[in-house]
Amino acid sequence: MLNIDCPWCGKRHETEFRYGGEAHIARPEDPAMLDDTDWAAFLFMRKNTKGYFAERWLHSHGCRRWFNVIRHTVTHEIVGAYKMGEKPPKLPKPAGGAK
């Protein structure tokens, strides 16, 4: 069970949240100008990082606000949470064995 630090409510259990996948995927400025390859890249292609990963969470059973979290996808270590539009926290030095 993850303990997630909501930027508004503080640390809560994972069961209060809903996962939103990879963070910082900007919607294209002018979708009509995209070709099929670029549209597929926006819609479907994902980083799926093994290591420190920026992801979105929704505090659905709390303040109901979206925010971002930096979490390690092998150790599940959470580096920090930050509000939408804010800069992500600095990454720590990689732990032993993790990239």
Partner: peptide, 13 residues
């Protein structure tokens, strides 16, 4: 489990 992971373990809930 809803979140991305490579850890071969999940949450108890």
């Amino acid at each position: 489990d809803s979140f991305n992971s490579y850890a071969q373990r999940g949450s108890f809930h």
